[in-house]
Nucleic acid binder design. Structure first.
Lengths: 146, 146
DNA sequence: CTCTGTGCAAACACTTTGCAGCTAA
DNA sequence: TTAGCTGCAAAGTGTTTGCACAGAG
């Protein structure tokens, strides 16, 4: 049944690749499998360390490029960091942000329901929450996809 | 009344500094004012360019350090980028993330109301939204503040 | 007067790019 | 066969650090 999991993982991977016109290389598959199996939200470096055990010759660049590719194709996404410079805000009026993936613009918007969400008791016991953040990513009017 | 704005801005700034034991230097004030007046979520570089017009001798490092300090003291916050490496995820089951500000751990949690939020029509017309993200920042059990 | 903050320069970490050889389709 | 992929090396970008002097409290 572990085999089943691997199998369906591979299906998803190869379908997405085919749809996007990507070749299925052993390195690419290995990077994807490593990420899909991990529960640690790994960095490129961390994936690299894992995959290297199986493909000692793989380079960190390939891992980096592959992760970005996977994100572009919709097989993965970024949970931390953007590669871009930090951006700051001093406006605490409870607004939210929309980030354009293409031109990197950040637009404020206000939508009441977002800021009214209360955290469940369970979470508040588990963590000391300093900030709740809600944001949207996508393409602004000027950058509509393709 | 522009003066009033400046005045209350200064009040807030100096109160926060006093509370945190920070000195009020012209550079620090200039950086804060620049950020507080801006609606652009500027990067350090961008703040630097602005402030330099008034204090030609200020260094980018100072701007950088000041912005981080302001964020630490609660006068500002980061809307993009973290300084850390990118982290990836291939799990699309609609979970949310908690990020520990100290140990950088990222923990998944599931809370239904978050994923059920629908975007207002107005936003969907304005942007092509690819992903909605909700996350919490704070301190995990092992890193309770101080 | 003291101790924090600043400016400068060097070090760092992460990411990106150019290119030649390789390989999946 | 050939377009796309990989590995290597170098360059780029943003951030951090160490240190001596300057300035706020």
């Amino acid at each position: 049944m572990n085999n089943n999991l691997e199998q369906s993982m591979f299906e998803e991977f190869s379908n997405a690749c085919r749809k996007a016109g990507l070749k299925i290389t052993p390195q690419r598959l290995a990077v994807y499998q490593c990420l899909a199996k991990s529960k640690e939200h790994p960095s490129a470096e961390s994936v690299y360390q894992q995959v290297k055990k199986v493909y000692p010759n793989i380079s960190l660049d390939t891992v980096n490029r592959t992760l970005v590719t996977l994100a572009k194709v919709g097989l993965a996404f970024t949970v931390e960091g953007s590669g871009d410079a930090k951006r700051f805000d001093a406006n605490f009026d409870g607004h939210q942000h929309f980030k354009c993936l293409k031109c990197k613009k950040i637009v404020d918007f206000y939508y009441e329901p977002f800021k009214d969400i209360e955290l469940p008791e369970k979470l508040r016991r588990k963590f000391e929450v300093v900030r709740k953040t809600f944001y949207l990513e996508g393409y602004c009017k000027d950058c509509k996809r393709e």
